[in-house]
Computed example of a mutant assay.
Amino acid sequence: MRRPEKHQVAASFSRAAASYDGVAALQRKVGNDLLQRLPDALNVHRWLDLGSGTGHFSRLLAARFPLADGLALDLAEGMLRHAAPLGGAQAFVAGDAECLPLQDECFELIFSSLALQWCADFAEVLAEAERVLRPGGVLAFSSLCAGTLQELRDSWRMVDSFTHVNRFRGFDEYQRLCADSGLELIALECRPEVLFFPDLRQLTHELKVLGAGNLNPGRPDGLAGRARIQALTAAYDTYRCPDGLPATYQVIYGLLRKER
């Protein structure tokens, strides 16, 4: 499965920096859930917020570990420019999770929430995490897997054969890659999170504002015509329930530890 080009991902999220926090309800919930999953006895001197975005969780990590030094790293320089004045981390670095511009064994904690789904080579992400973690250090991550936005994907299939919805690796692939890594697997689970929208326009608007619109190869060029949008709206409306139109995200939560 081909992944979006990294420069496209970086540019999309850089453009979204100023508006991102206003519509990031799912991102906040998932990140808070990930924070709650951190081991209680974790002794942290340095932490890394990997895919730090607007720095929201960098600031929460700083509050949780007030004596530790933090580093926020993101592929999107626009996100870093937005986050740096707000504090939280001691340093803000542009970098790629698959090739971290960091020294070996320098963190007790890597925290990464809803960022690693954009990485094509998750095995390399895990290898880099092992490299920069100190012995006994923990990688805590959340990501998205196959089945995310399935309602939208299936509705588009009723309209045409183009790729309109971002594609993510399956849970079984996450299981295999984590098991094959040099890290000890503490926990790995997939949980659905469902958001509800009054109409299709609100859903697609939110995806655009978040910078998480369709970034995959095979997407159509240009805007969809009125007839296609009407057909899509009719198809998606078959999912409507009393709370509105559902949008299901399949969220992966993982905890891995580097052996001492």
Results as ranks from 00 to 15, higher is better:
S12F: 06
L255A: 02
S112V: 08
W47N: 07
F141I: 07
V138W: 05
L223W: 10
L109C: 11
L126I: 08
G95M: 04
E151P: 11
W118R: 01
A76G: 09
A11F: 03
L60P: 00
Q90I: 15
D69E: 13
R28G: 04
F168R: 13
G51H: 03
A83R: 05
L35V: 14
V194R: 12
W118M: 03
V138A: 15
D21C: 10
A10H: 13
T238K: 03
G218E: 06
V23I: 05
S181M: 15
E130L: 02
E98A: 13
R157G: 15
T233E: 08
F122G: 00
A224F: 10
A10L: 13
F65M: 06
A120P: 02
Q117I: 12
L200F: 04
A234D: 11
N43K: 09
S161M: 14
N166M: 13
T238Y: 00
G222W: 11
G254D: 00
G55Y: 00
L73V: 15
R260T: 11
P101Q: 04
E189R: 15
V132N: 00
V93F: 03
G136E: 09
F57I: 09
P246V: 13
S19H: 11
L215K: 05
A83P: 05
G225L: 05
Q8C: 08
L80T: 01
E184K: 10
L102D: 01
D180Q: 15
N43D: 08
L114E: 01
D121C: 07
V251S: 00
L207V: 06
F141C: 11
G87A: 10
D221N: 10
E108C: 07
A11P: 00
G95N: 03
L188K: 12
R169M: 11
Q175D: 06
W118S: 03
R3H: 15
L207R: 02
S155H: 15
L80V: 15
R167W: 04
L177R: 06
